[in-house]
């Protein structure tokens, strides 16, 4: 078990990106009761955004977060108007079919515009590693984890401390009561949708620093994101955080100690187990 510290570090890195993607999923479900299967593709867009920002103007992926997140936020507002609001009341089946269609469209648009070539970034510090006791981690991955933690912390503070954040939580708990006290529910839902996509955009930029991207990478993300929200409990940010760590660690441990796809097999077996034993996940559908 000499590798264990290293495996844990690798698991944490995997978890960081997954948690951001899953948090967007959990947020949109918890507040708007909307299931967004295209969340992985939004992260893919974030990755390409970071790639092109680096390729054309040499922008560091950790800097381009400040670009991809706001742009994805705006796309999130558009997404709300065109794909969330019109069908929100029609049930999860409709949401899934709508966003699955969107996912395929985005994948193929990406294929058409940017080809199937695998893209990656090499920064000046790509080969720099940092020693963390018995484990070592590339500087890029370390920054990625730190930034992911900072974003989750910022999101949590926003939801728990600001009046707007509290209004979003109020909407998630009782829409009509929130409306009765003058909360503009529609605006809060649009804002939530923007934040959910901004999280995907940020995740994309951050992961671009250490992963390669291609048009269909989103479908991998979405599987893990759903694993996380099923294990953690749909609609629960805390659940996304805990389950994200669990999933990241399982994947890393499986890869190292069993090899190949063992980690993924374990993760998806865990989903099935949870659906049997505890379908509400670790934290139920506790709203924010």
């Amino acid at each position: 078990m000499a590798f264990l510290p290293q495996v844990i570090v690798d698991g944490l890195v995997l978890a960081g990106g997954y948690i951001l993607i899953a948090a967007g999923l959990a947020l949109l479900f918890g507040v708007a009761d909307y299931v967004n299967v295209a969340q992985g593709e939004f992260a893919m867009l974030g990755m390409y955004g970071a790639f092109f920002a680096w390729a054309y103007v040499g922008m560091d992926p950790f800097v381009s977060v400040a670009l991809t997140a706001p742009v994805m936020f705006l796309i999130g507002l558009l997404f709300y108007r065109t794909m969330v609001r019109p069908v929100r009341s029609r049930g999860h089946g409709t949401h899934i079919i709508m966003t699955l269609g969107l996912a395929f469209v985005l994948q193929n648009v990406a294929l058409l515009l940017w080809t199937a070539n695998v893209r990656s970034i090499s920064t000046g510090y790509s080969r720099t590693t940092v020693e963390l006791g018995p484990a070592s981690i590339s500087l890029a991955k370390l920054l990625a984890v730190v930034l992911a933690i900072a974003i989750m912390l910022g999101l949590t503070l926003f939801l728990s401390k600001t009046l707007t954040g509290k209004a979003i939580r109020a909407v998630s708990q009782d829409e009509s009561l929130a409306a009765a006290f003058g909360v503009r529910v529609d605006k809060m839902l649009a804002l939530t949708s923007g934040i959910a996509l901004a999280l995907a955009g940020a995740a994309g930029s951050i992961m671009m620093s250490y992963l390669t991207t291609f048009p269909t990478i989103g479908s991998r993300f979405i599987l893990f994101a759903f694993a996380i929200v099923i294990i953690g409990g749909l609609g629960s940010l805390k659940g996304a955080l805990v389950a994200g760590l669990v999933v990241g660690l399982i994947e890393a441990v499986g890869q190292v100690y069993v090899g190949g796809l063992a980690g993924r097999i374990a993760v998806f077996s865990l989903i099935i187990a949870f659906l049997y034993i505890r379908p509400a996940g670790l934290f139920g559908k506790v709203v924010l």
């Binding site: 509290k166 708990q173 009561l177 506790v286």
Partner: peptide
Amino acid sequence: GKQIFPEM
């Protein structure tokens, strides 16, 4: 309904 926000 519940008339309060239970989780707050």
